[in-house]
Design a protein around this nucleic acid. Sequence first.
DNA 1: CTTGACCTTCCAGTTACTGGAAAGATTACC
DNA 2: GGTAATCTTTCCAGTAACTGGAAGGTCAAG
Lengths: 132, 132
Amino acid sequence: MNIGSASDKSGLPAKTIRYYEDIGLLKPDRADNGYRDYSMSDVHKLRFLQRSRGLGFSVEECRQLLALYEDKSRASADVKSIAQSKLQEIERKIIELRELQHTLKHLVAHCHGDKRPDCPILESISGTAGSS
Amino acid sequence: MNIGSASDKSGLPAKTIRYYEDIGLLKPDRADNGYRDYSMSDVHKLRFLQRSRGLGFSVEECRQLLALYEDKSRASADVKSIAQSKLQEIERKIIELRELQHTLKHLVAHCHGDKRPDCPILESISGTAGSS
DNA sequence: CTTGACCTTCCAGTTACTGGAAAGATTACC
DNA sequence: GGTAATCTTTCCAGTAACTGGAAGGTCAAG
């Protein structure tokens, strides 16, 4: 499929998709007319990149994650340890998101109009009292 | 406290803290010697920024979230609607992280050495079969 | 066969930092 | 008090990850 369809299906702008090719994250086929030709597997990778970038992983981290995904054949120890450290990071991100969620919910529910400058939510939002 | 301590407590490099001041996210006091002087409230904001940036929110989104946090006095409708849309985004991020977590766990548990190029995990990693 | 939507490359601009130089301030030690 | 190490300041340049726009080739519809 052309880059436009790949863009629609992955949620990434065509510009970004070309950029990801430039930096070697992806190598789509080329049609005879010179157009890039994306397979479903390419689209899966793009969608994966779209998600993990949006979740705060750097491009280099995404490259590693993508390598995990692609190199499942020569997997074992090396790959496993990367995956495991990423799993810890994901765990941490989930916890932080839950805390942020909790805080915002409180803001919406309890703080509208309440003017106290020492609102206890101020502490929880930054995770200092984060022993939930 | 000086920028070094604020850096230690927030987890942000001093460089980044100064940058956040440049773009108007923060206005610490200045000591007589010209050094920036951070309050605990500043540190809370920095820590908050550190987290939300790491979770994939843009600086502009962080600015909004910070405004929620600071403008709790003139809150109401406007603030609430921003908070609510951020809450939806957070919900989505949590779900995506759980899916990514699930996929990586499978990779670690089941895919080491397994060479099939059509491993079903390939689909789930990109969220296409994400009806879990 | 032209119009419009798509694709190509290339180059410049933006966002969000990050590194390093040059110089002033503070602390720590003799 | 001296002075060396370790802050801190500003400024300017560089990097990462896009993003916009120009100039031009391709394609499907009428």
